[in-house]
Structures are given as structure tokens and as C-alpha cells.
């Protein structure tokens, strides 16, 4: 596959390491009342969709950016590639 890196342009997916569902960005608040249940969901529950899927790809042999790639799991068509850092910020992850 070719992943169109937002900073570096098209790169072979062989340079990347697949890191799973992009939901891993949404790490729960450890002090929430239901934290344990939320972490179990976070750690183990995946949607496994037949179609568009947001997933993390780590450009390990490149610039070491984590990317959020929206990819069709049946056709491998890639709809969007974003820097995971930007996605994380937009989803409220901070510090």
C-alpha cells in the first residue's frame, strides 16, 4: 500500500508499523468514576468494521510520526491521512 504522509507525500506502507485502532488515542481519564470499566473497553473492545476504519500507522522507518489513516478494510482504499498528534489534540488529549 501507499500511505500519503501529510508531510512527506506518498510512502510505501512497508516503512510503517501498524499500531491498531485509532481509538487508542482516546485513553480514558484515570480518575473517572468508571475508570476501570472504561479502561477495559479501551484496552479490549474493537469494532472490526467491514469498510472505513481509522487506524494508527507509525512511520518507524521514516520520520517516526504516528499517523491516523482512514482505510477501507475491504478495498484498502485510503480516504484520509492525518498526523496522530493533531488528531489527539482535536480529540481533547493534552497532557
Amino acid at each position: 500500500m501507499i500511505i500519503n504522509h501529510p508531510l512527506l507525500g506518498p510512502r510505501d506502507s512497508a516503512e510503517f508499523t501498524y499500531m491498531g485502532d485509532a481509538k487508542l488515542i482516546d485513553r480514558p481519564d484515570w480518575q473517572a468514576p468508571e475508570a476501570l470499566a472504561q479502561f477495559i473497553d479501551y484496552g479490549y473492545m474493537r469494532d472490526n468494521p467491514d469498510g472505513a476504519h481509522r487506524e494508527l500507522w507509525y512511520h518507524e522507518q521514516g520520520d517516526r510520526s504516528f499517523l491516523v489513516v482512514t482505510r477501507d478494510t475491504t478495498t484498502h482504499e485510503i480516504f484520509a491521512v492525518e498526523l496522530a498528534r493533531d488528531v489527539a489534540r482535536s480529540r481533547g488529549q493534552s497532557r
Binding site: 508531510l7 512527506l8 507525500g9 520520520d63 517516526r64 510520526s65 498526523l83
Partner: peptide
Amino acid sequence: KAGHWAGERIIAFWTGPDQ
């Protein structure tokens, strides 16, 4: 910028976002 190097005696090349 990303994908490039520049400089003369000392050069810099881009290695990652802000790096």
C-alpha cells in the same frame, strides 16, 4: 523543510516534525 537538507559547512536535515 520536510524531505530536505540545507546549509554549507554546518548543514541541517529534517528528521521529523519540528526535528
